[in-house]
Simulated assay, not measured.
Amino acid sequence: MGITSAWAISAHEDDVIAELAPRFLPVIEAERNDPAARRRWDAWRRAPLPDYRTWYAGDDGAAASAVESFRELTCAGERVIDACYGGGEDDFYVVDDVWGRQADPAGMFLAVHSKEYAVASLFHAIGPRRAAELPGWCGDFLLDSHEVRRSLPRVEAALTFDLRQRVAVDDQDWLDYLPGEENVVDGPVRVWRHAAAEGLGLCGLSLHLY
């Protein structure tokens, strides 16, 4: 049975970011500091993957293991997923309690895909050097307005390309988009600029919807 994943970046006032911080910052740090995750990151950094269309061609076990390691690295983290859905007496639900608090489309980037992870496609397309410039861990982050402004130049540098580079990036983004849908390269930097201009913080979360 397949999954449907979502990666969302939403802009909020600093008081909302402060409210969300106890829930999300510890689990994002736990994902970042997980030894297996660090090994996967280091392996990808040392040996970025080739053209995604070659990943499952042939019988190279080491190559297949590298692909699966990268997919595990960039899929939604279980700790973050658990925090998004609450449980027990905690009726927190990310759709209502985070995304539903941003009614302005300019303050939201949302990528929903069946059987794919948006962060995986973005990270493969831009490579580990640029991905390392993005705050947080593999698409998950929580930043107040000061941190958004401070990080904007790094995010712009990571997600800005000359024509040749952009062609190569688009070629390696394997996601399918509906007409007019924002892609994983343009959406994050657009909402980052919006938040910086409006004095807002940002919440980035990657998870399973079902």
Rank of each mutant, 00 (worst) to 15 (best):
Q102M: 14
V98Q: 09
L122D: 04
A197Y: 01
L122W: 03
L25A: 15
D90V: 11
G187S: 07
L49Y: 04
R23H: 11
A43P: 01
E89H: 14
D162G: 12
M1S: 15
G199H: 10
R71G: 12
R53N: 04
L205D: 04
C138M: 07
G88E: 09
W44T: 03
V27M: 06
A83R: 01
W7V: 01
V27K: 06
A37Y: 01
G127D: 07
W41F: 06
P105C: 14
L73V: 06
A103R: 12
A131T: 00
W41H: 00
L20Y: 06
A83G: 12
P22W: 10
R190F: 14
A83I: 10
W55G: 03
D144E: 05
L159W: 03
G204E: 02
E182Y: 01
M1D: 11
A132Y: 00
E156I: 10
V169A: 04
R40Q: 13
D140V: 00
V95P: 02
R166H: 05
R101Y: 11
G87N: 09
P179E: 08
V169W: 07
W55D: 14
D91G: 14
L142P: 08
P153Q: 00
R32Y: 05
F92R: 11
H146M: 11
P128H: 02
R71W: 09
V167Q: 13
H208M: 10
L163K: 13
T4C: 15
P22N: 07
M108F: 10
L205P: 02
R23D: 15
A62I: 15
R166C: 07
V189L: 06
Y93E: 14
A11I: 15
W137S: 02
Q172L: 10
R149D: 08
L152G: 10
G127H: 00
L134V: 04
I81N: 12
D144V: 08
D42T: 00
F123M: 14
R129Y: 02
W44P: 09
R166I: 04
E68T: 12
P50M: 01
C75I: 02
R130H: 02
R166Y: 00
A83Q: 07
E116T: 05
Y56I: 13
P188G: 05
A18Q: 12
F109H: 14
S206M: 07
Y210R: 14
D90N: 12
I3R: 11
I17V: 13
L202G: 06
I3L: 15
L209K: 10
L178N: 12
G187E: 13
L122E: 01
C203Q: 02
R130P: 07
L143K: 06
F70K: 00
R129S: 08
R40D: 10
N183C: 07
L200A: 05
Y210P: 12
E133H: 08
D60M: 10
L200T: 04
E198M: 14
A64K: 15
H146S: 14
L142M: 04
V191A: 04
I126K: 06
V67S: 10
H208E: 14
E147D: 03
P26H: 08
S65N: 00
A47C: 02
R23S: 11
T160A: 13
D171H: 01
H124I: 01
R32Q: 03
P153A: 06
A8N: 10
E89A: 14
A197G: 15
R164W: 08
S5M: 12
A125M: 05
H208S: 01
